[in-house]
Design a protein around this nucleic acid. Structure first.
Length: 296
DNA sequence: CGTGTTTGACCCGCGC
DNA sequence: GCGCGGGTCAAACACG
């Protein structure tokens, strides 16, 4: 039993298609072997679909839970109403927050902070349609690089020392796609110098280059499913629990701004299933596992 | 030489 | 209207 089996309730041993009749193997033709392999691929594909279904169910439960809990802000209990005097968009909130226990990848939905008192000189209409997301990343306090690895490609276009925080704030634009409107601000927390606060504005209008997470399927926007699986592969992930999208942070390579429609999910299932089925590494691993079972 | 970063100047919204 | 301060621009610089 692996983490996959445990977490998803699968038991590969229980799959009859993965058992091989030792007495007949030597008599079977190559063609029959191929047929069996394709049948196994089929069953694996089904497992992937089932996996996604379970993930979606879990996510729905989580969404329900969060919605019952009220505001989605994971780290802030209240947002105090302050005078309209301009200030750093998150410094005051940080003071209200309990930074203790923040991992490298806690994340906070900022739909709640895209309200008036947190506007960045932006018109209200703009703010209403712009998704603002904040992540907290644990770093070495002596590290002054202000770099938050999130899988996207950023171009730094400015740096400022703000009034309320002695640490400089770095401004980044997404340079992955020329038309991508997403901007990012990174600044050390005033409370905890070992915490980097990255604030994302807008939504990416392009796919994310997935850095080899799924073997040969790099460059495919795998969306929520890839994020869910990669969350097992990358221990320091950011899960945006408050939105329908998932986000990896720190060393995670994936950021899916938004889970798409049912059709998109279906498409992603197909992509994942075919990717796994066609992955030679996966095939080889599977074959060796089967051979191991045969010989044991 | 191309690309990315730095940094001072400038822009602009907001409060007084 | 003025000053403050966050955000952006763009020339200079660094680096491979």
């Amino acid at each position: 039993m692996t983490w996959l089996d445990e977490s998803l309730g699968f038991d590969l041993n229980a799959n009859p298609l993965l058992h091989h009749d030792q007495t007949t193997v030597s008599d079977k033709s190559l063609e029959e072997e191929l047929n069996r392999m394709s049948a196994e691929n089929k069953s694996l594909r089904q497992m992937v679909v089932e996996m996604l279904n379970k993930f979606n169910t879990m996510q729905n439960h989580l969404t329900d839970f969060i919605s019952k809990q009220g505001p989605v802000n994971l780290m802030t209990s209240t947002t105090t109403t302050t005078p309209r005097k301009r200030k750093a968009p998150y410094d005051d909130e940080i003071k209200d927050n309990d930074i203790n226990g923040i991992t490298s990848s806690n994340i906070m939905d900022s739909n709640s902070i895209s309200d008036d008192e947190n506007s960045w000189k932006k018109p209200r209409e703009y703010l209403k349609s712009t998704k603002i997301l904040r992540t907290y990343t644990k770093i070495d306090p002596s590290d002054t690089s202000l770099i938050v690895k999130d899988g996207y490609q950023w171009k730094k276009y400015g740096q400022k020392v703000t009034k309320d925080n002695p640490s400089p704030r770095a401004y980044f634009k997404c340079s992955f796609a020329p038309t991508c409107p997403v901007k990012k601000k990174v600044q050390k927390s005033i409370e905890d110098r070992s915490v980097l606060i990255a604030t994302y504005e807008g939504e990416h209008n392009h796919s994310l280059h997935v850095e080899g997470t799924f073997g040969s399927t790099t460059g495919v926007a795998l969306g929520s499913f890839a994020s869910s699986i990669s969350s097992h592969l990358h221990p320091t992930l950011t899960l945006d629990l408050t939105q329908s999208g998932l986000k990896c942070n720190d060393d995670g390579k994936i950021s899916s701004p938004k889970i798409g429609s049912l059709g998109l999910q279906r498409y992603l299932i197909e992509q994942m299933a075919s990717s796994i089925a066609q992955d030679p590494i996966f095939k080889a691993s599977l074959a060796s596992a089967i051979n191991f079972r045969k010989s044991s």
